[in-house]
Amino acid sequence: MALMSTKEIMEIIPHRQPFLLVDTIEELEPGKRAVGKKCVTYNEPFFAGHFPEEPVMPGVLIIEALSQVGAVAMLSKPEFKGKIAYFGSINSAKFRDKVLPGDVLQLECEIIKTKGHIGVGNAKAFVDGKLVTQAELTFAIGQ
């Protein structure tokens, strides 16, 4: 059973369809880590053009989904309630396998460093337990 539904996620981060890329939050330690899920369906709008003959989820959207999970972790801290988490940087991104329609992405982001309104997360995406994407993400909390 999910810890947070899509509706509850939307109470924390400002993203909405079609750009909300997290369906549920499965685990949450505010300010420390979050684990979410994204059920990738053939009806995703990006599949119309990426690629019509062989639909593949764009890597940049996997990174965005990971950042949304990291934002839930950061913005769940009481002092950041109602704020927005912006990208500060994306480092060491690696794409190890394709993500296809029918896949369920498990999105994990562990906040490994914080200083004031800045946080750094170690983010990993898995399909069926296999690592497909990883990156280090820096968040800046704004208004």
Rank of each mutant, 00 (worst) to 15 (best):
A48S: 14
V132Y: 02
V120K: 11
F126M: 01
P55H: 06
A140F: 13
P45V: 00
G142F: 01
Q106I: 11
E54Y: 14
L66F: 06
P18V: 10
F87G: 08
F139G: 13
L100N: 03
T133Q: 01
D23A: 10
D23I: 04
I9T: 10
V60W: 02
E11D: 15
H117S: 13
L21N: 07
F19C: 12
V132M: 10
L105D: 08
R33W: 03
P45D: 00
I12H: 11
F126A: 01
V40E: 01
L100A: 04
G31A: 04
N122I: 01
S92T: 04
G70W: 09
F46E: 01
V35R: 13
T138Q: 14
P55A: 06
A125C: 12
R16N: 10
K115A: 07
V35K: 11
G49H: 01
L107I: 05
A65K: 09
K130Q: 12
K113W: 05
C109H: 01
L61K: 00
A73P: 13
K32R: 15
G121L: 05
L105C: 06
V60P: 08
A93V: 15
G82S: 05
C109W: 01
L20H: 05
N43Y: 03
L20W: 05
V127D: 05
T41F: 03
G129S: 04
V56K: 04
E11S: 15
E136S: 09
I111L: 14
A135F: 05
I62V: 04
A93F: 04
I118S: 11
L28R: 07
I84W: 07
E29C: 04
L105S: 10
H50A: 03
F51I: 11
V69P: 13
K37I: 04
A65R: 09
S76W: 06
T138E: 14
A34L: 03
P30T: 10
K94D: 06
F95R: 00
A85D: 13
L28Y: 05
K124N: 08
A2C: 10
P14R: 05
I90E: 00
V120T: 15
E29A: 08
L75V: 10
E8M: 04
Q68R: 09
A48M: 14
G82V: 01
N91S: 14
T6V: 14
I13M: 06
L61T: 00
E27A: 13
P45F: 00
V99E: 10
L28M: 09
Q143E: 15
K77Q: 15
A135K: 06
V69I: 07
L21F: 02
I9S: 12
S67A: 15
A125K: 11
I118R: 11
E27I: 04
G70A: 12
N122F: 02
V60R: 05
V22N: 13
A65I: 06
E44M: 02
T114E: 15
L21W: 01
E79I: 09
F126K: 02
Q68L: 09
C109V: 12
A65F: 03
V72H: 12
K130V: 07
L66T: 11
T114W: 00
A71H: 11
